Simulated scan of single mutants.
Amino acid sequence: MQAAASLVLVLLVLGVSRWQKLELEKSIIWSVVRATVQLIAVGLLFTVIFESEQAAVWAWLWVAAMVVASAYVAARRAAGVPGVAVSAFTAIGANVTIVLLVVFGLGILDTEPVAIVVIAGITIGNTMPSTVQAALRMSDQLSEQRGEVEAMLSLGFDGASATRRQSAQVTSHALVPQIERTKVVGIIALPGAMTGLLLAGTDPIDAVLIQLVVMILVLGSVAVAVTIVTLQIARKALTDDLRVADWVKR
């Protein structure tokens, strides 16, 4: 009943779209239907997986599938950037590996199948959009500042030095929203993980501590993923003889 009641807000969005003539009604309906089907399917799969004797194996396979799927989605959304699939896979895969090693290796959380999937899912869910945006923005920055990069190369700078400013700009742009969200958490915004735990009856202090871990992980994971993808794209933007590649638009 709660889920059905939330459809009132969907009707509100549809009304706004129709009123403003945005022509987004089909897209809105499709996204809601798709999300509903996907979440129900995931819920059923989780029930089977976590009740299985091989729950740990299934959890790691699920994480691997999420990494591959996220790299595929990133490649589709940033199709104009050469090698973005490999860059996204490397960035997201390395990121998830680091996060899971920190969380479970340092004993922050118990190594349970549900915790593995949840932490990996939160990490990927937050880093994939940032990875896509970083890839697109890095491509744009290199195109807009191609002359500057070529000038630095002609003066004898190596590839990393010639593209360092563009990489820094993209990384900074990706981190600022995450930093701002971290600043206002608890004052203006109540994050989803903490809210869910509170609604489930978890002790408020425990909910806050778990949310703090999640937020720090998200901030760190975005930084790692964006840095990896920008550096890889910067390398692909230059040829072996240190010229700007043809795919970088003039």
Rank of each mutant, 00 (worst) to 15 (best):
A135V: 11
I188K: 11
L22F: 13
L7C: 02
E180D: 15
D158A: 10
L219A: 14
L238R: 09
W60F: 13
V103M: 14
M66Y: 13
L7R: 02
A225L: 10
I179F: 10
G105P: 12
T90D: 06
K236H: 04
E112K: 13
S161E: 12
L175N: 10
L106M: 11
A91I: 12
E180P: 08
T47H: 13
E150Y: 01
A120E: 10
D241P: 08
S143C: 02
T97V: 13
S167T: 14
A69H: 09
K249T: 09
R243D: 06
T171I: 15
V224F: 10
V13M: 01
Q211E: 15
A65I: 04
A234D: 12
Q133D: 09
S17G: 12
V208A: 13
Q169G: 00
D206M: 05
L61D: 00
V68K: 01
S17R: 05
L153D: 01
L39V: 09
A55D: 09
M66T: 10
P177T: 02
D203R: 01
V13H: 04
A200Q: 00
R34L: 11
M1H: 12
L7E: 03
V149C: 04
Y72T: 15
V10D: 11
K236D: 14
I49Q: 11
V229D: 05
R137D: 13
A207D: 10
V81C: 11
L14S: 06
A75C: 08
G192A: 02
Q232S: 00
K26Q: 13
A94T: 08
S143Q: 10
S139V: 06
T131R: 07
L7S: 01
T36A: 14
V214A: 03
L61N: 00
D140I: 03
F50N: 06
L7P: 06
S154V: 09
T123S: 09
T47P: 01
L106V: 03
E23W: 07
D241A: 07
L12W: 07
D203E: 09
A5I: 04
A135C: 13
A75F: 06
S154Q: 15
A55E: 04
W62C: 13
A120N: 02
D158N: 15
A55W: 05
T230S: 01
T230N: 07
D140N: 11
L100R: 00
A223P: 01
V68T: 13
I28S: 08
V99Q: 03
P129K: 06
V218F: 09
R235G: 02
L212N: 09
Q169C: 02
M138R: 14
T111I: 03
V114G: 10
S52T: 00
T131S: 11
W58P: 07
V57I: 14
A74N: 06
I216N: 11
S130C: 05
D246A: 09
V73T: 15
V32P: 03
W30C: 05
V32H: 01
G156M: 07
F50K: 04
L106G: 07
L9T: 06
T163H: 02
A174R: 06
